Amino acid sequence: MSNTTLHPRPPFKFYLGSHNPAWLETADVPLCVSHARLAGRRSLPRARHGWLLDSGGFNELALHGGWRQSAREYAAAVRRYHDEVGLMRAAAPQDWMCEWEVLRKTGKSLRQHIELTVANFVELRSLAPDLPIFPVVQGWTYPSYFECIRLFERAGVDLSKEPLVGVGSICRRPRLLLPTQLLAELARAGYRVHAFGFKKAGLKIVHKDIVSADSLAWSYGGRYEPGCEGSHKRENNCLRHALWWRQDLLNHIAEAQRTAQ
């Protein structure tokens, strides 16, 4: 792996996950919105702020055992979002998550998921080199992530030159040791890392090493929180609650920065 990068690492950016595409028009913070929430809409919102497109891959693979859209169809959808929604900063490819429940559903091996992840990015880059689709490193064990990196290198993709490199299959782990060490090592190698769905406790550790992250954890927790101001029963779809959760996360990170100084 290269230890240099053509892109200086900017301050950490957090993309707030959203089930509701309409928030793109109203929320004045960076959002992460899934392709599954935008696909098939006749009209699309106009973004108020820069945002990140998630492919919705975990649910796609866990529910259907594979991608139902071809790379060409997905690239066309990304182009539509890029042009009609506007302000798209980055778009995830159709990567293949490596959690065991996903592997059981697809019936494929960990190695096959890694190979398919690399192949899809290479195809998308060929189909739409002008779109901000970024590579994602997938794996489950420590060696498998680095095997994915080697496959990217063999395919002619220099990850150290990419403006953003995602790391997947890290959000549902019971322990933080492997993902925090992995993210820090990739940052030392010069990669501008995006951590998909990483836990708040993990972000307090690795925020200084990564470029960005996203999370919908506020919504999962909000299922058990009573709704604010009596306007709804629960907080899992509440923008006000989501923004409070986001600010609390950023406050925890700021405190971690002060403590480290």
Rank of each mutant, 00 (worst) to 15 (best):
V157N: 08
D95H: 10
L116F: 14
L176M: 12
W140G: 00
A47S: 15
C98L: 14
L250E: 15
L182T: 06
R41F: 03
C148G: 03
K105Y: 03
G156M: 09
R246I: 05
N251F: 11
E147F: 01
A128F: 07
S231Y: 10
L6A: 12
A90R: 09
A189R: 15
L53M: 12
E225K: 14
P226A: 13
E115C: 01
N120E: 09
F12Y: 14
L110W: 00
A27Q: 07
L203Q: 08
K208T: 11
F58C: 01
T106E: 11
N120V: 11
K200H: 10
L250C: 03
A47G: 08
Q69N: 13
G222K: 06
A128K: 02
L6Y: 03
V137K: 02
S169V: 07
H252A: 12
A184T: 15
H207E: 08
E115I: 00
H64I: 00
N3F: 12
R154S: 11
I133R: 01
W245Q: 14
A62R: 06
Q112D: 15
S215G: 15
R175F: 12
R48S: 14
R80P: 12
R68K: 12
I133G: 03
S18H: 06
R223M: 13
E255P: 00
F121G: 01
L183N: 05
F196R: 05
R68F: 04
L124V: 05
A92C: 13
G57H: 07
E235V: 04
L52A: 11
T259H: 08
L243R: 09
S55I: 06
P129T: 09
L44K: 02
F12R: 09
A76C: 05
G197S: 05
Q257D: 15
G202N: 08
H49S: 12
V157G: 06
R154Y: 01
E235I: 00
L216F: 14
L116K: 08
Y224R: 14
A92H: 01
E84Y: 07
T106W: 08
H82P: 02
E123P: 06
E73V: 02
W96L: 01
F12N: 04
A22K: 12
L216C: 13
V193A: 09
R240L: 12
E123V: 07
L243H: 10
L52K: 01
A187P: 13
R37L: 13
L183V: 09
L63T: 10
V118K: 04
K200C: 00
K161C: 10
H7Y: 15
H64S: 10
D95C: 06
Y81T: 05
W245P: 01
V206M: 11
A75W: 02
V118Y: 01
H232V: 07
C32I: 05
V29T: 13
S144R: 00
H19I: 09
G227A: 13
D214P: 10
N251R: 13
T5P: 06
E162G: 03
A195H: 07
L53D: 02
S70C: 05
Y191A: 10
R68S: 10
A187L: 06
L203D: 03
L249W: 08
H35S: 13
S109D: 06
L176R: 08
W245I: 03
A36D: 09
R258P: 00
P143W: 08
R37M: 13
F152E: 04
